[in-house]
Design a protein around this nucleic acid. Sequence first.
DNA 1: TTGGCTTACGTATACGTTTACGTAAGCCGT
DNA 2: ACGGCTTACGTAAACGTATACGTAAGCCAA
Lengths: 328, 328
Amino acid sequence: MPTIKDIATLAGVSIATVSRVLNNLGGYSEETRKKVMAAAESMNYYRNEMAAGLKKSSAHIIGLIMPTSPTLFYGDIIEGLESEAQKHGYGVIIAHASADGINLSEIISLMAERRVEGLVIASMALVQNVITQINGLPFPVVLVSTKSDKSIPYIKVDDESASFDATEYLIHHGYEKIAIAGPNISDQIAGVPRINGYKRAMQKHHLPVDPDWIFYGTFSFESGIQAMKYYFQLSNRPEAVFSVSDDTAIGIIVTATQEGLQVPKDIAVIGYDNTRVAEMSNPPLTAISQPFFEMGAKAGRKIIDAVESNQPIESEILPHTIVERRSV
Amino acid sequence: MPTIKDIATLAGVSIATVSRVLNNLGGYSEETRKKVMAAAESMNYYRNEMAAGLKKSSAHIIGLIMPTSPTLFYGDIIEGLESEAQKHGYGVIIAHASADGINLSEIISLMAERRVEGLVIASMALVQNVITQINGLPFPVVLVSTKSDKSIPYIKVDDESASFDATEYLIHHGYEKIAIAGPNISDQIAGVPRINGYKRAMQKHHLPVDPDWIFYGTFSFESGIQAMKYYFQLSNRPEAVFSVSDDTAIGIIVTATQEGLQVPKDIAVIGYDNTRVAEMSNPPLTAISQPFFEMGAKAGRKIIDAVESNQPIESEILPHTIVERRSV
DNA sequence: TTGGCTTACGTATACGTTTACGTAAGCCGT
DNA sequence: ACGGCTTACGTAAACGTATACGTAAGCCAA
């Protein structure tokens, strides 16, 4: 590929002048500019970002690490981050870590080798030695839709209070026998806080919590099917379910419908995430909405701000909302 | 950040030796290796890929460009590509182009500046000057789930024959009044061929095609809702619908159900793509399946092969399948 | 005339690696 | 003792760009 040296030769100027013209730095005559531009065009020149980045010691790239689990909202996070990055002339390099985070440390190293300007880690739990590694990194890192200890800033909604609101929303609609489906007791980020929020809402309204109503599971559609089958054979059957994901909620709805129950008349369901499947469910799913696109965009903006101002990133709790449809 | 020069100083060797040790090239004693590794560890060294890439003139990065439209299968393409890339030590840099491709040329330039090893463009229509630009690029480009002229290799399923199969599947299940919902007549890639496949199947089985049965639209859920409302007020109402996307199909199912029709008894629906919503529909959606993860992975492999063997990439038509569920 | 300022360049170095090449030391066989 | 081979290094030159610095030319004021 042609270099500025080739352009310089063809245009009959020095490489410094070519560089100045190409970067709009001024200090050249209009005539020279035309010669250089013409030469560059004719040679099909593309600037070498690696060389430029090496010299300027900045790659203008933001890294993004996500788990390899098939979840629907990742697309929104990517698009949010990428749109913000593109706006500021940054690129986004993305890598998937296995959901258990086994290879996370390696992937972080690869990002460091690429000299990313900053790193976004979405929806992954961090073990201690990864936290240590991150704290030793010379660029900002921000967590999205997850958190660890105080040392790493994060952007997420408040799971406990979102769960409280979801549960209270059901209570306000007259339901008293309310279940929670899907939480994982060993998940300190999206499991335990959601159970706590659920319990707090029930307690506030002096409603009993039947331990049988807590169906531990995953965020999957299948988990929702299992949850509903489980509830179905309960003697003290719940009238409403707060589900920890939209997929799980739809699993519940589909299974309930197949068993002859009507949603929301016989059983109400509220989901979590408000992904695109929520509106496609039948009936359409009422759900807690997480602003994934905004989370991605915000992560990008915070990193760019941090790089340009040299200030540390501050965590941010984003507001959740309840998108009302017809499943409650 | 520390450089190999710093390591060399600390370990008391030359930078060449450090480089050799760090790259496992041999030509050093075990004692030296240990000294170097210890020094590198203690300084928290990360290799500078920009410098290495500049010297070796290879960035070990594959570019991926996708439209910014909210479609569910992009995640699978990304994951397929990224998993294959990671396996071979490549990174993936991703950029979104507006769906109309206005800024596509710029984005391709950015990829060229980053000296990607190859470029994957997914699901975008290419205008002539972009095609020209691509043909002038010094690295391989492969299209995924789209095609242009002969000059650029692509990986996709055969839309015409998939549509033929979908339609024939309905015919084999006894339906005769079959509609097609969602195609766009100006879409030469996913519009016209699907209409043609549909018509060919109908003709083969000597079934009449009522022009009213072709509902032109988009790939969206809303388009499905509109399609069903439209079919509903038709005097010659179809008994089955071939829908150009899963979202559209589910829009049809939801609307039909709300209007009191039963799926598939009163109206059968077959979707296209087999995204994750297909199994979550009620009833679960029978659909043409496109292997998106495999498409991404294959694109990655072809690029890596092309780079390493210096051979051009050949187009490939991937087989589609019909995933049978309960909407037919 | 001289000095100083501005404009429009060119020269040369640095960024951090990789790697071709040189070389000293050690060992072998003759 | 000598040449030749191998091993374990070091030296130095790239890769393509940005940029600090130098400088010649032109202009103006005193």
